[in-house]
Design a protein around this nucleic acid. Sequence first.
DNA 1: CGTCAGTAACTATGCGCTTAGTATCTCTCA
DNA 2: TGAGAGATACTAAGCGCATAGTTACTGACG
Lengths: 223, 223
Amino acid sequence: MARRRGPRRGGVPAVTPPRNGSERLWDDDLADVAKALLSSAVECFAVKGFHGTTTRDITTTIGLTPGALYVHFSSKEEVLFEVVRSGHTRVLEELRSAPSTGNADGRLRWLVARFVTWHATHHTVGRICQYELSPLEPEHYAHVLELRGRINDVFRNAVHRRVDAHRFADQDVNRVARAILSLGVDLVRWYRLDGEDSPSRLGEFYADLAIRMTASPRTVTVR
Amino acid sequence: MARRRGPRRGGVPAVTPPRNGSERLWDDDLADVAKALLSSAVECFAVKGFHGTTTRDITTTIGLTPGALYVHFSSKEEVLFEVVRSGHTRVLEELRSAPSTGNADGRLRWLVARFVTWHATHHTVGRICQYELSPLEPEHYAHVLELRGRINDVFRNAVHRRVDAHRFADQDVNRVARAILSLGVDLVRWYRLDGEDSPSRLGEFYADLAIRMTASPRTVTVR
DNA sequence: CGTCAGTAACTATGCGCTTAGTATCTCTCA
DNA sequence: TGAGAGATACTAAGCGCATAGTTACTGACG
């Protein structure tokens, strides 16, 4: 007993995973402990940032010691990369699940609503995905940039489709698309689950707003 | 000579201030070296975050040693606080310089354009003001929160005024005000001076967008 | 001469990561 | 079926380095 050095392997897990809803975001093939490490990292990174978070913070929160992190990930940076990559991948999957039928208005509305709902629901992960990119290694950053480019394309295409449907030539389409995306992203900075809007209500509100933002200028000034 | 311990004091300054436009933001009563430290900190904090920036980063960039920082500021955190407090204070001053005459549309347009132009021009400081608040000491954070509340109030009032002027009851005014503010803030995340929009052009675009966002829903659907 | 801005050297602490070891599990073989 | 080997998840301890901040001192200025 005095010389006890290791944990039980298998059997009842020694790990206490955090209950923050992020475990749904990780790849299925990850071990349970790896998933718990990621979920713990999410809470720490979101509050203290990457550099302000220690490996001791991440591991002790779930009942492990710092060395355990290196069994599953090669570095602290790789934990960050996995969080950010998974977050973006899940967002992209969500957007790609959009129904292929329907008109341009409906499509844009659907995309905005889903994007916003996702970011409100996962605003903690979202915060890391938006504001903690600079500590990533260059190849990891490049990978994430590519995912972001794909997400941007979905919105840009949807806005172009809606605007084309109304045939307005004096509209700067890319600027509006970027503004709509901007709203969906910036909410991770201020959103709280105990605020007055549920994720889906906020999604509906922003979808309405996006339609208004892409309306023809002539329509607005018709009064 | 072998025991030389200090620098030349006075005469030709040993300090090389960074040229990033932030020196205009600091309080006039600060010493030139203190201002240079703040401007250097802005570059470092914006790229590496507060925790990822060392006192050596800040000081050696302008030709000083780490101990020099403590001649002017009591801690690294105080440097951050001064950057963030000054940034918010300058924004608030800008908003308060709005002409008191004019209609509700013009006022909202003016505020948005100025807010956006400011954040595009000073997007580096803006990034710190939005995303590097968690390392602040509690009293400093409270101070900054109060400034932010005042900035929010200016926008909320302007949006209420515009909406009231049109007498629309089905509009969620605070949500729209928050969305407009959100656009102005999130731009610090992505804005680059070498992009296609100058600060003032972006300000005009967002001012137009804000008017559209606050238009009556009935107007939009009048087609 | 006194003051003060800044330096060089240093201190105490903490960090990311490594290493040697342990307990447990799984598989193979007789 | 049981024993032994190999593999593995994890710990406790530690390493090498770096950090924020301190201290004793210097040189220039008024």
